[in-house]
Design a protein around this nucleic acid. Structure first.
Lengths: 341, 341
DNA sequence: TTGTAAGCGTTATCAA
DNA sequence: TTGATAACGCTTACAA
């Protein structure tokens, strides 16, 4: 092992350029405040030495990091990918860096991640959904770190949100399903206990059914984690009931695609034997055969608007007002009238 | 706007517990070095005040961050998701935190991200592939930050790697394809100029074909960015040739699924009219109909081993020896003998 | 336009 | 077992 010199610091640059550290700092942060001749000299020294500013030191001295943290429940499937990408692009355009963490849909992990990101100096936080221990909100308050919620819209929650009404959207879809003549419904949902979006979507299903003259008691709901195989298993369970549903409403596209896979294995035709619907309109939804009927969520718009809102909260230090986006129904091949209708 | 007190610091805790900052620091970092009675008092103060350590200050003082950075070409599709997940799990188990950045397959962006992560105090870096300006390697050296390459294996590159031989794997697959009787090949590849894995995979195709007595001149190769729609377009282009291929070898599963989608639109049967193969064995590959023939990459194993190797490099400050993993071929529904064979 | 110097919140060395 | 105190590398009044 060879000896390695320590990385160059501001004062190395200052020495090499024959100026003070303050001048070097100015060259880097507000070049217009340094006369050109010195600036050139300094920048040359920076290049020569291969100097890179130490972020930790900068954060400590400046007391802001130009960093935004986002904690999403999962990065394993595409559920949050597109929105997050747009979020990140907008942040970047405004000079901020994004730090992403995943909570695996666990409240305790999310709290840990919140603490981690705050301790790393995040200037603001993007969180998903409103289900959360109030204590952690108090923590954010004492730490003076603004937070914004996305992927759901709720005007009178304790945090501002940029998102859509999951319940209303699902209700609209199920109303369409009812109009087609379906009377026996199966529901494959995400975990409702720890996931307000999943909960609201199931509520939307019941809203639609109760609003019609149908009997809500006949609806079978299976809860499971998001995952193609989980969707497949839940679907199999539903279809093995004495009176299987004619339509299976899935809490998201991942579950729905799992259901489709299992239908194939069971030699059940979709939509001839059973209809299937999803939620989110991931790329997956247009790849499967037939294409999946689902609810299109304006992911990119949500990401972009969330970024703008959060930056405003960070810079102006004011609470942002919530923004509601409008999903739209995408009727595709997996939905048709029930077999006997 | 209400007044917000600044977040509590170490010395706030020290004052509140009636000890020195050194003792508080010890309670947090090596509790066994503090007698129980004081420790209890200190921890109570920590809880009371809602104290969270300031990461930037800690990094500066300790001169290590227990943070590993990873820069992948994309987070938009699942190509790197599973491996990265395993990488992160192993890091976590060993007390490290993962910071992920995406380069969008651009060399300049990757350099920027490398600098960013180093400046943020990453103790080590995971990079994908070996294609990279030597200057940035020198930078890593002067900054004293070890780096490891994954998703490819190359024993005599300048950085150690944990991965597989893309060329050899693709060659094996194409040899199988040849054995089935195929003679007209189409290739849909990722960008070979900026992506050594894509390049090696194409080379593997030619290796197999040259090793047989076939004429390599008849192979049409189309390069495109990774994406379902790109795969679809490239496939359409290949199938509109005067003598279209009987098999389309795709550089990865995402492209292959795009090809399958387009085949359906063109009413081409897979595999009756044309065979299609992928690479990676993403979850996607088992969801499509028919299931995709592809090369299974041990993503999780790669992630775990990369984490262990990188941590060793960080802690022992020695270069790790490269590790080669073995992908395996997964023959599934999209591959069959050519129509006329 | 540039320099001086006081922090920023930790850790770590050295004494007590 | 604990406490002083000097770093760590940078930004930013304030002064020159």
């Amino acid at each position: 092992m060879t000896f390695r010199p320590p990385a160059p610091t501001l004062s190395d640059v200052a020495k090499s350029a024959g100026v003070s550290t303050a001048t070097v700092s100015r060259c880097l942060n507000s070049p217009e405040r340094v006369i050109e001749s010195t600036r050139n000299r300094v920048m040359a020294a920076v290049r020569n030495l291969g100097y890179t500013p130490n972020f930790a030191a900068r954060v400590m001295a400046a007391r802001r990091s130009l960093t935004i943290g986002a904690i999403v429940p999962t990065l394993e499937n595409a559920i949050f990918a597109r929105g997050l990408q747009a979020f990140q692009e907008e942040l970047l355009a405004q000079g901020y860096t994004l730090l992403v963490a995943s909570s695996s849909y666990r409240a305790d992990t999310e709290e840990e991640q919140i603490r981690t990101l705050v301790s790393r100096g995040a200037d603001g936080l993007l969180l998903i959904g409103h289900d959360r221990d109030p204590a952690i909100l108090k923590f954010l308050q004492t730490q003076n770190v603004p937070a914004l919620v996305a992927w759901t819209y709720d005007d009178n929650a304790s945090l501002p949100s940029v998102g859509f009404n999951n319940r209303k959207s699902m209700r609209a879809l199920v109303e369409t399903v009812i109009t087609l003549g379906h009377r026996r419904f199966g529901v494959v949902s995400g975990r409702t206990e720890t996931n307000d979006r999943a909960r609201q979507r199931v509520e939307g299903v019941f809203d639609a059914i109760c609003a019609s003259e149908l009997n809500a008691n006949t609806i079978e709901v299976i809860e499971t984690d998001y995952g193609i195989e989980n969707g497949a298993d839940a679907f199999a369970q539903l279809m093995s009931l004495k009176t299987p549903p004619t339509v299976v409403i899935c809490g998201n596209d991942v579950l729905a695609v799992g259901a489709m896979k299992k239908a194939r294995e069971l030699s059940l035709g979709v939509p001839e034997d059973v209809s299937i619907t999803g939620f989110d309109d991931l790329e997956l939804a247009s790849v499967v055969v037939p294409a999946l009927t689902t609810i299109h969520v304006p992911h990119r718009e949500m990401g972009t608007k969330a970024a703008r809102a959060l930056i405003e909260m960070v810079e102006k230090k004011v609470a942002h007002v919530s923004v509601e986006l409008e999903p739209s129904i995408r009727i595709r091949g997996t939905l048709a009238p029930p077999p006997t209708a």
